[in-house]
Simulated scan of single mutants.
Amino acid sequence: MSDKVLDRASVIDMSDVDVPGFLASLSDRYPHLQAARAASEAPLTTVHGFMRDHGMGFGYRLIEEFVRYHAFDAKHLQNDADTVTDQLLVQKVLVKLRGSERQRALLDSLLKACNGLQNTQALLRKLQADLDEYGSFQAMR
């Protein structure tokens, strides 16, 4: 970021995010999100843990958007929860991934943790292939 942007910004360190605690408070405040929370908690907690360990964690806004979209989909589109999780991981969470050989373990861990999520695994395999071929990877489109 440029100095001008940093002068006007409040930079917030999001490396210490309590995913389960935030999800509990979210469903306490909004009981209609209980099922969406249940569908989101395990994948969000797992993926956040791996990404946080590599300096790529995400914050509360993304977590809330993830849960709220799960609730929206369940009410209006009625896709199965794994399909929604798969879409959201690719579209909202994993777009943050970028790095070099130092992050190979992150890609490997995420690939194992996201077993069965076809789009997520396809993206992670593409990033691994980019890392193999170019020595770095970036998920942003």
Rank of each mutant, 00 (worst) to 15 (best):
S2Q: 10
F58V: 11
K75T: 15
L77R: 06
Y69F: 11
T45C: 09
H70A: 14
D130S: 09
T45M: 10
Q34E: 08
P43S: 08
A38M: 12
G135S: 10
D16F: 03
A139F: 01
S25L: 09
D132Y: 01
G21K: 02
Q78S: 11
V67Y: 10
F72Y: 11
S10E: 14
L23A: 03
A129K: 05
E64W: 02
A71P: 09
T46W: 06
M1K: 13
L62R: 10
Y134L: 14
S27P: 07
A105R: 07
M140Y: 00
R141F: 00
D132G: 00
R125Q: 03
T46E: 14
A129M: 06
H32N: 15
D86C: 13
L44K: 05
F72I: 08
A139K: 06
V17S: 03
Q91V: 07
R125A: 05
F58N: 12
E133P: 00
A35D: 12
L131W: 03
V84P: 06
Q121M: 07
D82T: 13
R102Q: 13
R104K: 13
L88C: 00
S40P: 10
F22K: 03
S2G: 10
S40D: 06
E101K: 12
L123R: 02
Y69Q: 05
L89I: 07
R8H: 13
A74I: 02
F72K: 03
K126N: 04
G21R: 01
S25Q: 04
F137T: 06
H54W: 11
N79R: 15
E101W: 15
R52V: 00
E64L: 00
Q118L: 15
V47M: 04
G57N: 13
S25T: 04
Q128C: 02
L88F: 05
D82L: 05
R98K: 14
G57M: 12
H70R: 07
F66N: 09
K4Y: 14
S15Q: 14
R29H: 07
V5H: 12
L44Y: 13
V17G: 05
Q103D: 08
H70T: 11
V19G: 06
D16A: 02
D7G: 13
M14G: 05
E65V: 08
D86M: 10
A24T: 08
S10H: 14
D53H: 13
P20L: 10
E64D: 09
T83V: 07
G21C: 02
Q128F: 02
R68A: 12
A74M: 06
E133Y: 01
Y69G: 07
R61Y: 06
L26Q: 01
D13R: 15
Q87T: 11
T45K: 09
M56G: 14
V11W: 14
L131Q: 05
D7S: 15
L111Q: 04
S40E: 03
Q138T: 03
V11I: 15
D108Q: 09
A74F: 01
V17D: 12
R104M: 08
F50K: 06
G116V: 02
T120C: 12
Q128R: 03
Q103H: 13
G99A: 09
D80G: 03
K126Y: 01
G116I: 01
S2E: 10
A81K: 03
T120V: 08
G116S: 03
R125H: 04
E65I: 11
R61S: 07
G49C: 07
V67W: 13
A42S: 11
D80E: 10
L97V: 08
P43N: 09
E41F: 04
D3P: 12
